[in-house]
Amino acid sequence: MNPFRIAADLSHLASILILLRTIQTTNCIDGVSLKTQVLYVLVFVSRYLDLLTLHWISLYNTLMKVFFISSSIYIVVLLQRAKVSNAVAYKEMILKDSFKIGYLLGGSAVLALLFNERFTFIDVAWSFSVWLESIAILPQLFMLSKSGKAQSLTIHYIFALGLYRALYIPNWIWRWLVENKNFQKLAFVTGVIQTLLYSDFFYIYYKKVIKGGGVSLP
């Protein structure tokens, strides 16, 4: 594994741990989008179906996949628990979390049927997961734009996620140039789309927050 890939995976891990630990220790869910978190469960479950085929890549690979699936489910469980333990914040979250995810799911399904490496269930599911991941952050960004100001939890979380996506791009170039691996067009295209979404967010964040004021997205 190259340095970009390791750094990317670590920041992905960090983003999840930031979210998990904060919700767990403070019971604070302010500014978190339940819809984005549910989408990530779907992303990981549909992507890592190869765990069932027992196609072994490495211990690292398997452990990370199991961690991503289980932690994403656990985050949704924690958010659901807030329904009882932090009812006011939960109601506010549901109210603000009003992005229509049907379009994201439908769009990803259509794109997966059109663009995939092979027309098998596992490969179409993999393609669905990369398309869905590229846009899964939209409900979260939408929520942020509606609330007008961002919690430090959300900012740290989105920042770590954005860093992970950005680092995958030099990783792919490294793989292609240095490791002579096949260039995976689908992963690259969806990865670039995703990184552009984040960079748009950071651009606005920089303009509005660093230079004073709240966060609002177009």
Binding site: R5, D9, H12, R47, D50, H55, I57, S58, N61, M64, K65, F68, E117, R118, T120, I122, D123, W126, Y168, Q184, A187
Partner: peptide, 10 residues
Amino acid sequence: SNTAPVHDEL
């Protein structure tokens, strides 16, 4: 091709 694509990335 008939061989399954290998996704060694996460």
